[in-house]
């Protein structure tokens, strides 16, 4: 097991992502942040508070559970459904930033795009991920990345966040076959 990102690295990466989001969208006025549970939701909340401290305004932040839109449901045991909370401002005509912890095959993001399509029509959809570990199976690319981590397929990337895991850390582990 090796540590890929320390607590400080994570804070720096999220701060940079927040600035990049503001730069690309020319401010925070039309932004909606939607985190994908579980850890993406916590990261979205952190980005939201960093943006609030930079801009001085609250950014509508919610969660988007994509379980019901997955294409691999039949390959796994039933999963628990996590909360979906869309901010009251809605997503119609907004610049929606999807936030996830690890970008891997891209299938989660495809499901998230389907889920968004059921809710409304954002002006743009952008993607922020703390870690991009490669191995995409779909033509999906992140707009904001905390760190690119080249990995092999039999490694597993684990994200720990203080909100649920008691500490901030990203590790790479060799998966026991």
């Amino acid at each position: 097991m090796s540590v890929a990102l320390s607590a400080q690295d994570i804070t720096r990466a999220l701060t940079r992502i927040s600035h990049e989001i503001l730069e690309k969208n020319q401010g925070s006025t039309n932004i909606v942040l939607l985190g994908i549970p579980t850890r993406g939701a916590h990261i979205a909340t952190r980005i939201s508070s960093i943006i609030a401290s930079i801009e001085g305004t609250e950014v509508p932040t919610g969660t988007l559970d994509i379980t019901l839109f997955r294409d691999d449901l039949r390959m796994r045991p039933p999963r628990a459904i996590m909360p979906t909370k869309i901010p009251t401002s809605g997503i119609e005509g907004k610049d929606v930033i999807l936030v996830d912890d690890v970008l891997f095959s891209g299938r989660t993001i495809r499901a998230a795009l389907d889920a968004l399509g059921e809710i409304g029509r954002p002006r743009t959809v952008q993607l922020a991920a703390l870690v991009d570990r490669g191995h995409r199976e779909l033509p999906i690319k992140a707009d904001f990345i905390g760190k690119n981590l080249p990995t092999s397929k039999n490694q597993s990337v684990k994200v720990f966040l203080s909100e649920i895991d008691g500490r901030d850390e990203v590790t790479i582990e060799e998966e026991a076959e």
Binding site: L73, R74, M75, R76, P77, P78, R79
Partner: peptide
């Protein structure tokens, strides 16, 4: 919704 595998 799930596959044939048991939960857990």
């Amino acid at each position: 919704a799930g596959g044939a595998l048991e939960v857990g």
